[in-house]
Design a binder for these strands. Structure first.
Lengths: 213, 213, 213, 213
DNA sequence: CATGAATGAGGGTTCATTCAT
DNA sequence: GATGAATGAACCCTCATTCAT
């Protein structure tokens, strides 16, 4: 099925913002990539910044949605962490451009919009913090500095967007598995556990980010 | 001691490129931050891109230098990894602006310059790859996918530049310790080991990045 | 009775051109004020300039018509002047937007159209000039520089469109009376006279500009 | 003496804003008329609106200054009115472009700036109102509606900017004389009087607007 | 009749850079 | 060594207008 113009614009923006940055991407670049005239762009977006904000908004909304949907059905801390890592890694591997825009271009937003985006990101991190805290309280995790460990984990998983290629040796699922294992090691948790939760996370991820199996 | 104009220019550039990106930083912003006129800037730099390239170059050179100097005196894989993590984390925590420029603005370089920078980065990663490989060969590390683990480790450590604040609870040394421990856990290595090498790395870092203890 | 779309467009244009000027009014402003889409505007007008020209044309045509109809039945110079002032003032007070467009936006017309409009205005001024000349010849008016006085009179009366408000103390008729008196004073004419002609002018004005008494 | 670039810019703006309106004048028109590049314009002005505001500001400031300086030395109402008319007419005849900009482009200013300009204009009109009031109180003027008469007078005098040409039959002084006479007639004042004040006004005008005799 | 989609031209403004002083 | 003046190119965005539906 052919893409609508609006979809072409969105995809061009995601691709270019990820590759050259928001300020490095001109309206003419955008138009060329979307195969319309610069003036026509403005039928499909407000300002360039509106477009950036919409991209970020949707990306974060999906991540939050996925995390909440998944954790609703998982109770044990190791499972929750496995699920969160799985989701995060799959999201960043499947949508590296979108997630890089979210991670790198927050500074290009105006104050008000930045506040919204940072707010969403904080909500999302709070979910991770809660899961880690739970595991520590239950004695499942051995973590001297939960906040540091949370940030280390998140940066590690987010980094996937900067290097993963689907043409490499590892499948999306394999990658997520590997990362879940690394995470549990970092948390000093049991060497296994959380496979069911990870499975559930893979299902949610497949749906939310339309990953073809 | 007062800073020279050249130093003021360099620091302004590092700060602004890190905060707003290369394309988001104008020559006038730079001049204002360095407290000279836009025209005078050009007595202390070539083009804006020259300035960016010089910043990256120096940052990567120092990291490479530090890594080589340290590994020269360390032989065991756990020690080498501890040392690399310590150096990398301290560099990124002590110079978050410089390192973020290196990480985020590679795409703003012209092709030729990008090649040089990517080359340096590859050299640096090769050092990490070597250390991991050595540990795997020696049976000290338990790592199914060395390349994936290397990238996970690097992203985790690099991420420090995006959140660490010296005003927080953790000292630079404490942070580096914690990260070294996380790294060894990820590698499935011995729970301890490498303390001497980390100590050596801290010394080198203190010298190379002029960290006051 | 509801307005036709064409009338809504015309009125929107008059209002906006008067308030923000021809160049300050966009096609989208026009469409919004007329409550149709920008594209639909073009079913009710030619180009934006066509619309401007039509507005000017009609406004000047009515003024000329009113002046001619009135002067046809008045012979004495004082009466003629009183009638002209009455008509001009009532037209400008009752239709300030239209007349301001005529006065201010002549420069926005293309050369050919400007010539037409200026031609109509010249015809109209010639009527004033004739009346003044007649009074001077008859010894009724004491005017050293007829041309200067004519222009002073006209500017004075035209200015009404820039300040008169029907919500103020003066009625349209009262205003016109006052101005007729001022005009006769300026012309050094008899302190009274021309009341009948002014009465006739009020009747014509009421009809031509649909003024409700 | 050659004009500075800043003066060329100012004059080009006055000329073009008067001829084609603020919105009808492009930045490129301005640059061409000032014989510099569009980019260079911005060394001599802030925004286009800043330029407009500065022009209006100066024009109104001078008018106020002239009025105050002149009235300081004149006490009788007929003299004051003669002086005000003389100044106003000479200002508008000598600087038709500037004054037309002030009169026609107030609507192009942003709210805050418009307030300032309207405030100055109100101050100026208050001076006229005071003089008329004084004459009415003293029984020198016969004016049923002082406010209406004031506005009629002002519009009449302002109109000079729309038609007077120094190449015509009337000199500036002659024009001002004629208008002062018309004004006294309108006010029902004495047929003569105020010659000394008018003389004083001509002197001030000559100085303030650098009129060559 | 009505309009979403489309666009070339141009809007005002800022860009990085040069150079005479 | 320092900078005001200058500019071509490009910036984001809006313009008036057309046309297929």
């Amino acid at each position: 099925m052919a893409l609508t113009t609006e979809q072409r614009v969105r995809r061009a923006a995601v691709k270019l913002f990820a590759a050259k940055g928001f300020h490095g991407t001109g309206i003419r670049d955008l138009a060329q990539a979307a195969k319309i005239s610069p003036a026509s762009l403005y039928h499909y977006m407000g300002t360039k910044e509106d477009l950036l904000a919409a991209i970020m908004r949707e990306c974060l909304d999906r991540l939050l949605l996925a995390a909440r949907q998944t954790l609703d059905t998982v109770d044990d801390p190791a499972g929750q962490l496995s699920a969160l890592v799985t989701l995060h890694v799959m999201a960043h591997a499947a949508q590296p451009a979108e997630t890089r825009v979210v991670d790198n271009e927050v500074g290009a937003l105006s104050r008000g919009r930045r506040r919204v985006v940072v707010g969403l990101r904080d909500e999302y991190e709070a979910i991770w913090a809660g899961a880690i805290e739970k595991g520590v309280s239950a004695g499942v995790f051995d973590v001297p500095e939960p906040a540091v460990t949370r940030l280390a984990l998140l940066e590690m998983c987010t980094g996937v967007a900067r290097w993963y290629s689907p043409r490499g040796a590892l499948s999306l699922d394999g990658l997520a598995d590997r990362y879940a294992q690394l995470a549990l090691r970092m948390l000093g948790g049991p060497p296994t556990g959380g496979e069911t939760a990870a499975e559930r996370a893979r299902e949610v991820a497949t749906r939310v980010w339309r990953i073809r199996p």
